[in-house]
Amino acid sequence: MKSNYMECQKIIRMLKHKEFIKVSHTGNCFEDGAAIYAKEIKENIFLLFVILKDIDIENIQALIAHFDCFGSIGLKEPEQIMFYLSIKDKNDLHYFEQYLKASVN
């Protein structure tokens, strides 16, 4: 059985391969130490994956959100959240992986 750490590393590799950009954050929207990966999917609409610092499977979040620009991610709250998924178990991780694959189509 794979460890949660290995699953998270697999997800990070997949995000980088799918041209997601790691975003640094200095605002209050995300927990300190969170790794944020973002990709614009439509004008000012972004698909974000937030991986919290303890790299535990229960601490991965996916969201589609509207920001006024790419530079706002990590600084300001999103103007609107259109989709949110919190990964809590292996079934959620499977759904997450399917959603990520579909997001490139």
Rank of each mutant, 00 (worst) to 15 (best):
K2W: 00
C29I: 12
L75S: 07
E7Q: 14
A38L: 07
Q9T: 02
E79H: 06
H25T: 01
L63A: 04
K53E: 08
K39W: 06
N44Y: 03
N28F: 12
V23Y: 04
L85I: 13
I87T: 15
C8Y: 06
K10T: 00
N44W: 01
P78G: 05
Y95E: 15
K10E: 13
F46A: 04
S24V: 02
Y5E: 15
I81F: 09
A102M: 09
N28Q: 12
D54T: 13
L100F: 08
N28G: 02
S103V: 01
L48V: 05
H94G: 08
Y99H: 01
L47Q: 08
F67A: 01
G27M: 03
Y99K: 00
K101E: 12
E97A: 05
K16M: 13
F83A: 09
M1L: 01
N91M: 14
A62I: 12
K90R: 14
I45G: 01
V104A: 10
Y95F: 13
S3R: 00
K42L: 09
L75E: 14
F96R: 04
D92Y: 01
K76L: 12
N91V: 11
E40M: 09
I11V: 05
F20P: 01
G74E: 07
K42P: 00
A35F: 02
E77D: 07
Q98R: 13
